[in-house]
Computed example of a mutant assay.
Amino acid sequence: MDSTTSSFEHRLRDNAGKVEAVLSGLLADACLNGEIVRPTRLLEAMRHGVLNGGKRLRPFLVMETAALLGGNDDAALRIGAALECVHCYSLVHDDLPAMDDDDLRRGQPTVHVAFDYATAILAGDSLLTYAFDIIAAPETDLPAERKIELVLALSRAAGIGGMAGGQALDLAAEKEAPDEHGITMLQAMKTGALIRFACEAGAIVAGASAEDCQRLRLFGEKIGLAFQLADDLLDLTADTATMGKATGKDAARGKGTLVALHGQAWAEATLARLVTEASELLSPYREKATILIETAQFVANRKS
């Protein structure tokens, strides 16, 4: 491991620790103003689905894109925590028997296994709702118009035309395998939309220009594609212990992936191209973009 890689991974871990601490505080027992009571079992299920490690890549992207453009660090951290609540809600629901039917997540029993189906559904519902609470709350130190922009962008990324719609397409793909365009669209929605939002959100936090927002959005789209392509490769090549979740499930269910269509060599070449394109998008920022370029490389080359 060279010093650059070590420095990047240290920064990723350090930021993950900050996100974990904020999420732990947000999921404390004490009620917020306007809440009546926080049911113990529901709160425990939410914690189980959120406070279980993980790289916290999406919050990291919010924090680093905001830092690139001079945004408020504390506000970016809270927006990253809100995004992680949406991401974790999606995992809790996707793991349910009616969806992807998984018993293991990040090396731990999934929420519906550790608790029960109904509690898992409610935990996911609560996490999704809480994300918008976190954005709107006075503790998030941003002008109201930026909060509105973030709420709108996250709603679009997470909803019917984004992540949730992508999951619907993913379920449909089990019955009828999509063509290459269909696979690409499904993945851009289910996986890519929140990664794209993470990069755009940092620019919004910073009050950046429309040009900067668009540039970071495109960067997010590129690494979102790379993330899913790397995930599909790992589904074929990694084992369950390494991944912390079941592998080989897409192939077992007959789901089409770009890796299955084109092969491992094509996927590796495409990942390299996406990293190059993502890096070139950030060339106007020169050395200030180093961490984000390293993030693109990490996404493409990760082993879990």
Rank of each mutant, 00 (worst) to 15 (best):
T5C: 11
F8C: 06
L12P: 01
G17H: 03
L32H: 13
V37N: 12
R41A: 15
R56C: 05
R58C: 04
F60A: 09
L61C: 07
V62A: 06
T65G: 04
L77V: 03
L77N: 02
G80L: 04
D95F: 00
D102P: 02
D102C: 04
D103P: 05
G107P: 04
V111Q: 02
Y117H: 14
A120V: 03
S126Y: 04
Y130C: 10
I134P: 00
A137Y: 06
P143D: 13
K147C: 09
I148F: 11
I148Y: 12
R156P: 05
R156V: 15
G159K: 07
I160M: 13
A164I: 09
G165R: 04
G166Q: 11
G166I: 01
A168G: 09
L169A: 14
L171T: 10
L171R: 13
E174R: 13
E174M: 13
A177Y: 05
E180V: 11
Q187V: 08
K190F: 00
F197Y: 11
A201L: 02
A203Y: 00
A203N: 07
A210R: 09
R215Y: 07
G224E: 10
A226E: 06
D232I: 08
L234A: 15
D235T: 05
A238S: 14
D239Q: 07
T240Q: 14
A241I: 07
G244F: 07
L258S: 11
E277L: 11
S279V: 08
S279K: 08
E280C: 04
E280I: 09
Y285M: 09
Y285Q: 07
Y285T: 06
A289H: 06
T295K: 06
T295F: 07
A296P: 00
Q297N: 08
A300C: 00
R302G: 07
